[in-house]
């Protein structure tokens, strides 16, 4: 089992009342799964993804990730955990505008303190694999949305994560570009990467092996 959520609750106080963002979520994800999380706006999809990604905390419940009890970990350990095993892909790509494609890809490796020559090889490999060698010296703003998201996925993959969390990865893309990204995910999944994606589109959800529906913070 890659991760396991047991009775997760998350809420915020608003005007003296508890507003639940997540209610009693139970979820087991095995290695090699491709899960699509669906549901209307405000149903808690992104919150769930953030909790799984350890970017956000929760108020009640237990979270086990690769035999670590996340709910008992200190913030620093949590950060190390997700740094090592999780890659993020965002709807708005979130590339750093001041860095070139090459430098954006290189950044996670720098934070992992990987040596220069090895780093070079890994970035070159990634550029090659995604067919963007010719774009390596361009800045994000000089790329189309699809190309930017390609770089985003490449950046998430470069540190060889076990799990990729994608929050509406195709939300800002046209249908052709979106399809390309989904094909890519499928292929990655076949290679053994676990993927959890949030999506609005039925069609994209179909790429996954399992669909989780959320409504008002509850699994349905």
């Amino acid at each position: 089992m890659l991760l396991e959520l047991n009775n997760i609750f998350k809420w915020v106080q608003q005007g003296g009342q508890r507003v639940f963002l997540l209610k009693d979520i139970n979820l087991k994800v095995a290695e090699g799964e491709f899960i699509s999380v669906m549901g209307p706006s405000g149903s808690g999809k992104s919150t769930l993804l953030n909790v799984i990604g350890m970017l956000d905390g929760f108020n009640e419940g237990e979270y086990h990730f690769m035999d670590e009890s996340v709910h008992t970990l200190r913030e620093k350990h949590r950060a190390e955990l997700y740094k090592q095993y999780i890659g993020f892909v965002f709807q708005a790509y979130h590339l750093i505008d001041e860095l070139t494609v090459y430098e954006n890809l290189e950044m996670p490796l720098l934070y992992k303190k990987i040596k220069g020559s090895e780093r070079k090889a890994m970035v070159a490999d990634m550029l090659d694999r995604f067919n963007i060698v010719g774009k390596k010296d361009l800045f994000p703003t000089q790329l189309s949305g699809g190309q930017q998201q390609l770089v985003g996925v490449a950046r998430a993959l470069i540190s060889k994560p076990k799990l990729i969390l994608a929050d509406e990865p195709t939300g800002n893309l046209n249908s052709k570009q979106g399809q390309d990204i989904m094909e890519l995910f499928k292929q990655l999944n076949n290679e053994g990467v676990t993927i959890i994606q949030v999506t609005h589109s039925e069609k994209n959800a179909e790429y996954g092996s399992r669909i989780i529906q959320l409504l008002d913070g509850r699994k349905v």
Partner: peptide, 8 residues
């Protein structure tokens, strides 16, 4: 971004 890709 930097924090999600591993900066402390």
């Amino acid at each position: 971004i930097r924090k999600t890709i591993g900066s402390v």
